[in-house]
Design a protein around this nucleic acid. Sequence first.
DNA 1: CCCTGGTCCCAACTT
DNA 2: GGGACCAGGG
Length: 899
Amino acid sequence: MSFLDQLNPQQREAVETTEGPVLILAGAGSGKTRVITYRIAHLIENLSVMPESILAMTFTNKAAAEMVERVNKLVGGFSIAKPVIATFHSFCVRMLRRDIEALRIPAAVPGVPPIGHTKSFVIYDETDQQQVVKSVMRRLGIDDKQNTPRSVLAHISWAKNHMLDPQEVYLQSADPNTERVAQIYAEYKKELAKANALDFDDLLLEAVRLLKAAPAVREYYNRRFQYVMIDEYQDTNRPQYELMRLLAGDRHNVCAVGDEDQSIYSWRGADIRNILEFEQDFPEAKIIRLEQNYRSTQNILQGASAVVANNLKRKGKNLWTSRQGGTKIGCYEAPDGENEALFAADYVAKYLREAVDQGENARAAVLYRTNSQSRLFEEAMRRYQLKYHVVGGFSFYERAEIKDMISYLKVIHNPDDSISLLRVINTPVRGIGKTSMETLERVALETGVSLWDAIEEAIKRQLLPQRALAALRSFRDLIEDGRAMLAGTYVERLEQSAARTRPERESKGPSPASEERQAVPQVEAPQSEAWRSEEDIAFDPTEDDNISFDFGTADDHTLDATVDEPTAKAGEGLRSTRTDDDSGFRTPGSAANTADILKFLIDRTGYIKLLEEEDTPEAYSRIENLRELVNAAMDSRDRGETLDQFLDHAALVSDADAYDERAQITLMTLHAAKGLEFPLVFLCGLEEGLFPHSRTFLHPDDIEEERRLCYVGMTRAMDILVLSRAVYRRRYGTDLPEASVPSRFLEEIPSQLVEQLGTPRRHAALSRAGAPSTGAQGRSAPHDGHYAYEDEDQSVSWAGRQKRRTPAATYSGKAYNSIENIAEFFASRGKKFSLPKLPIEEPKGKKGFRPGQKVRHPKYGEGTVYQREGDGEEAKITVQFPRFGLKKLVEKYAQLEQA
DNA sequence: CCCTGGTCCCAACTT
DNA sequence: GGGACCAGGG
């Protein structure tokens, strides 16, 4: 009971209103997560509600993980069962893995394939989707500038988020372009169906369709979930909204929490009407407003509120804080992007040092509008030897080598997955080239089968040259061996040396989970403290479905469910010779786990071996990544997960969740920062065209969303908020810098809340001034001269503490892209900073050829060094060969000798 | 027939 | 900085 006393009256009301629909309008920092988690705890602890009948859905894994942690803290280890706290997508996947076949129409007559997905569906990510769209467009002969695969896909996704099928898109289209999109969309759907694949949008759509179309399934979930909670309700789209309504059933025990000022996902179909019209959907709804902000200082809150007040489409609210005053909002105008990043690094470094000294919660975030901005900040942080963590951007699972291996697993899991098959059929190269693939695709198209089936067909009918056929056979055998491992028939397959027949499609081996359970002495009592997700909790004993199901818990960021293996109703399997091998010990005939299969694949494909032969630093880092993947697979195995669960995990969990606790600095996009808070927030790139982004200029509603995004970013800050912009910014790495216009959001902040950091001052030329500018250098960008920025005792007093004087820092506009500049910079800062150790590689031995030197190349003969770029072994050397002309060679690899 | 290297064009946010 | 595509070499 006591924990309720920690809440303010409004929060407490929100927590204690458990029956009937509730809408909680929770301003930024008003304790939204707190309310949800306390509400769950209240239901369990005080009202004795069964934990597993509570469902909370969030948007991100991060949010789900945090909620799980906080609920666990409140409820403690008393309960074995756990509430289901998951993202919309992962919840839907679990639902579909369990029940999607309820939507299936079986084959009526032989030869007519059944319709609908099976449980072993795969999830297509954006790259996969692009591939499908591309191939469809190629086939339909659509190749114009108006419809790029990218734009078509965006259109398809838009349609899906608004629950429009191809027919509807077609009928509503007013121009030939949209008609074409509708046609591509229709074909796209067919392709995914053929591949037994679902894209991200489908996960929601199919879950909704399932609940609508299958009454038994709907009843099951309605019986199971008595209380439904939705986080970030302002960002729900149509399918998510319908999902909520369907799950709410007749009971209407639904609690939605949101803030219209923080709606930042309209481009993903988020419909602000969902929050504005909640009362219409549930007339008996109770509305509760949380308006006390516990996070930010008054200055920050006022600044953010002033910005968002410029939006016309909002209800408006009175957010207040008891944290009077506070540090003013800092504003820094950098000459260019590099300087902006260095300033941020310097500022953050100073702050963290001081915060640590004071024993404060020392954490800082750098927030930006677009992922590509992260690069400069990463470099700056490294220069300062600061540990940082980048959220998002290139994910582990997006790396080529990882995607390759995942694709192999996907093909083994579901050979009809043509996109994954295309990716790996010649990776590593095994001699199946363009021509062979064209033949296979033709066969697949002609006979209406998947590529996988076409391989068999091509082999049978000898449609390709012997060499290509041999390559195809070796690929097919590899996949079939993998499938046999999965099914636990590998040994058997070896014994049948003439194993040419395909193993059954649908049947799965027993899940490793069951093996683990058997192998470990079983704790019979379901009331044991075995609370982790491995444990099976039979939820509803009255359940007549013979597939018992458990949503598991979402405690360890994985959000993966424990799914009982299907009671081996070996699909339409061709041969289901597998007997019950739940014997408990891993006999050679038993099903292999994901890690085993992965190791097998790496071994058989020679993937690592090939990388080793490459012998480049990059290759070794790839090998490291593959090892990491194997580790992940072993962890998955130890959790008792099956292959499909591992793949779901890979598809839905970004490495953003692998949060580095030691890093006090987090770099991420504004979108990714939603729901988080930091003592110091550095919000950068406040320039028209970047933030607000140029793509939003056309539509006033989009600008309003950018403004909300700015509001979200500003309200992440607890104590200190710094905004920055670059006067000149390079759009692409090498292009000329362009002058920028300050973001309109800067002007919307009342000036009395703002403090300028660093005063721009034209500095007498240090090196180049006066020198005649040459060529492109002659542009008017101040880049050509040096700019000095002096930090004239602008050192901020953190959170109102005593001011500390620091020596004036000099930021050179030319930036710290050379070691000399950095040394100079650090020297100007006094002893507090040590020079970052940047490895300078000395040319070794005979290497280090200079312009003018004569060299000999094994292939090109003698030549003269013309130019040298870079240093150390990585140096690129341009050599003039009398017979071959200019060649650019990497010193390390080219076997150059002195001539 | 396949592979590699060069060139062109692109780059918004996310499950 | 990087991926997609094309030309030319092996």
